[in-house]
């Protein structure tokens, strides 16, 4: 988890250990990045309800991948998510969008995409 959140070549000493002075900083970053924002929480509820997932919406780490490993969604789930997002937010997810991988990579990135493209 630590290595993914903080770039390893910056956060580690030459000998590979994390310098103590950075530990506090990284703890803050981790807590921050794992907490859902308000709009992320709304999206999480929508996804869990739509797919009947066996997790509490608030427990979804906004940074973990939605597809495959991570939340474990398959391509039919992704279709359902795309459909409900277009229905609820009027944001059409398109197959020819080269950024789909990035958009669907986590709750956070999907939410960012929705917030950037939704109508007023």
């Amino acid at each position: 988890m630590v290595t993914r959140l903080a770039s390893p070549d910056r956060a580690t000493h030459e000998n590979g250990a994390v310098p103590p002075c950075l530990l506090f900083y990284m703890k803050d970053v981790m807590i921050d990045s794992q907490t859902q924002t308000e709009s992320e929480a709304i999206l999480a509820v929508l996804i869990v309800q739509t797919l009947n997932l066996d997790v509490r919406p608030g427990d979804i780490d906004p940074m973990i991948p939605l597809y495959g490993e991570g939340l474990g969604l398959d391509s039919i789930d992704m279709l359902e998510v795309a459909l409900v997002v277009s229905q609820q937010f009027g944001v059409k997810l398109r197959a020819d969008d080269k950024n789909n991988r990035a958009i669907f990579s986590s709750l956070r990135s999907l939410n960012e995409h929705i917030q950037a493209h939704r109508g007023p």
């Binding site: 992704m78 795309a82 997810l93 197959a95 969008d97 789909n100």
Partner: peptide
Amino acid sequence: GLGPLDSLITVAE
């Protein structure tokens, strides 16, 4: 191909 995560979005379109 049913592999990429957006393959079914292609189907829908």
